[in-house]
Design a protein around this nucleic acid. Structure first.
Lengths: 218, 218
DNA sequence: AATAATATTTAGGTGAGCCTAATTTTCTAA
DNA sequence: TTAGAAAATTAGGCTCACCTAAATATTATT
């Protein structure tokens, strides 16, 4: 009843894709996110289907079964808890925790996630602001509003990053923007979607559309 | 220049065997501790030799090179630090930490061991009393005296367990014997090597030769 | 020294997860 | 509606780490 590291990664990828884009999940989308060849995906989809972890239909695409969903949520829970550990306890910066958690998320032991959760004080969000699934699989509400959706003149607070690439996280670091940072939207440039924002008392910055669409706020 | 999980386990096994028995390390001894077929060992020995991680000689047996030694010590360092973490921070009992640390020891990130070490307060020994290699590879002195070597009437303190099997650890737990427990040797039965010991004020127990040869004291 | 036991090596094979190349199916846009 | 693009599939191979079975070496025992 245990799953290989690779199987877990496929299910996590399916889960991730189903969260961020409501449409159907194609094999090529999976191949893309997992950075493997489409032919490899076909193999694995067969295997996971046989194990009743997913359902596949040319029309509906790939879907996790309840069983597969549990596995995926568990891996995500582990990943995010370990990220909190790495940041809060070992002092790693948020652009590094992801890659280490990619390894730690596959450590298998019944009570491990729960003990870690307890040790960390039951955090609701990981260092990137993503919600950490509870032991029962329940997911705390995550932010859904983009910085780009905030009206001119209004305030918001950074809730999460949509893009967890090192490049973006380091850029945020450089701007001293983190989870909880207060932002005022001063101007939205119609031409290219750039946004002029105010950080702190009088610190003005112009950020790109891409930036404004990568930051989740509330 | 990274090594596979399997390669790391072979080097750890070679290191372990070289620590506990001073003689030559045969392929069959390795096959035995790794619980694989001897033919598999032959394959891997070739591979590790090519990578200059070990030297193999029919007469002298298997030996780690300096390079291989560094890898092995690193894995052991990781293993024992994670064991401390699991016991001290997550509250796992000492008969469980080993199997989880078997997985955690292979997590790869440059600063991880050092950060963990710092977080744990630079422990010198793991929960079984085994010395934790320092960042520079140096190994704190470990206990070498067996309970069976203590003379009748003398006192000693448990320093480490030589056997880390669940069966032994749980038995110790049951007897309330842990690292640091004070023991007085009352009698040594010549017939079968059993030892009568005193735990605490007046708690007498008779333990087998096997037991007395599995407990390291000082 | 001969036999028995153990250790080592070779040869050939397995499954997991990946690949390329070629093909077929499905979707999209002229 | 049909050509072209994109997606899915098949066929055949690869590497890693393992296996069994058989052959050869070495070591121990009588």
């Amino acid at each position: 009843m245990a799953h290989s590291l690779t199987e877990e990664n496929y299910m996590k990828a399916i889960y991730g894709l189903s969260q961020k884009s409501k449409g159907k999940i194609s094999l090529s989308a999976l191949a893309n996110t997992l950075e493997v060849n489409a032919a490899s995906v076909v193999d694995m989809i067969k295997k996971l289907t046989d194990k009743k972890l997913i359902n596949y239909d040319k029309v509906k695409g790939v879907k996790l079964t309840d069983k597969g969903s549990k596995v995926a949520i568990n891996v995500v829970r582990n990943h995010r808890l370990w990220e909190v550990f790495l940041k809060e306890k070992l002092g790693y910066s948020w652009d590094v925790v992801h890659e280490i958690a990619e390894q730690l998320e596959h450590i298998k032991h019944d009570e491990l996630a729960d003990r870690l959760d307890d040790f960390l004080g039951y955090p609701e969000y990981d260092p990137h602001g993503d919600p950490i699934p509870k032991a029962n699989g329940e997911l705390p509400k995550g932010a859904t509003t983009l910085l780009s959706e905030i009206k001119t003149g209004e305030y918001c607070k950074v809730a999460a990053v949509k893009d967890t690439s090192t490049a973006f996280l380091q850029y945020l670091e450089q701007l001293s923007v983190g989870i909880g940072t207060k932002i005022k939207v001063l101007e939205k440039i119609e031409f290219d979607g750039s946004v002029v924002i105010q950080l702190g008392k009088a610190n003005l910055k112009t950020v790109s559309r891409k930036f404004a669409e990568s930051l989740l706020v509330k």
